[in-house]
């Protein structure tokens, strides 16, 4: 039995919901109210994750925090096709790890700017936005060159990986932190592809794909 410690408006929790849905895995969502109750800082939750962060996954008696780590675990254990976390291809696997780390940097910039505007956190929003734009520029260029060689996904190959899922939420929520995506056309095309992955689901602030072009 899988339990996800979950908050609907969290992009990091949404990553996990999205992967669970795509892989068709049933789970129980245990809501931890991030705002305003700050339940993730409560003593009971810190016993589960001393970092006081969402999400946390429990699979029977195995407990894991960090959204990237959780996706590595879920894909390794439950993706029989071995495509979301391509264990058998060292180079693609290396690239997946690289972009998982990149996704956490997006959390620390784009997501932080969103927390300032929507949830009244006291971070330096100007610095967060500048960092997010720097990261988006890097990803946009990477995706643009990938697309030139016929690849839709962050890690080149025929099918998406957990790197795509990891980067997707806080890029799509960036406007809630006043980070415009207007100047990132390759990111826009890539996000349309992500939205057409079978099993794709939304969260508040993220919309389903428009009609096919």
């Amino acid at each position: 039995m899988i339990t996800l410690y979950d908050y609907e408006l969290s992009g990091n929790c949404y990553k996990i919901r999205l992967l669970l849905s795509i892989l068709g895995i049933k789970y129980h969502s245990h809501t931890v109210e991030f705002y305003p109750a700050a339940e993730h800082k409560a003593p009971w939750f810190r016993q589960i994750n001393p970092l006081g962060q969402l999400p946390v996954l429990q699979d029977d008696d195995y407990t894991l925090c960090d959204s990237q780590a959780i996706m590595v675990y879920l894909a390794s254990r439950y993706d029989s096709g071995n495509s979301w976390y391509p264990r058998d291809d060292p180079q693609r696997l290396g690239s997946v790890s690289r972009w998982l780390a990149f996704a956490d940097s997006i959390t620390n910039s784009a997501s932080s700017a969103r927390l300032v505007e929507g949830f009244f956190y006291d971070f330096d929003a100007v610095a967060c936005r500048a960092e997010a734009h720097r990261l988006f520029r890097i990803l946009d260029e990477h995706l643009w060159f990938n697309a030139k060689s016929g690849h839709h996904w962050i890690v080149t190959g025929d099918s998406p990986t957990i790197a795509d899922i990891a980067c997707f939420p806080y890029i799509m929520l960036s406007e809630e932190g006043s980070i415009s995506r207007q100047d990132y056309p390759a990111i826009r095309r890539w996000s349309d592809h992500v939205k057409r992955i079978p099993g794709f689901t939304v969260m508040p602030g993220i919309f389903p794909a428009g009609p096919a072009q």
Binding site: L9, T31, E176
Partner: peptide
């Protein structure tokens, strides 16, 4: 209380990008 709050937070979260 939590499910009442989460229901409303979902609704507000959906309205936010439309309003902005």
């Amino acid at each position: 209380d939590l499910s009442i709050r989460m229901f409303q937070q979902t609704i507000f979260g959906q309205d936010k990008p439309i309003l902005e």
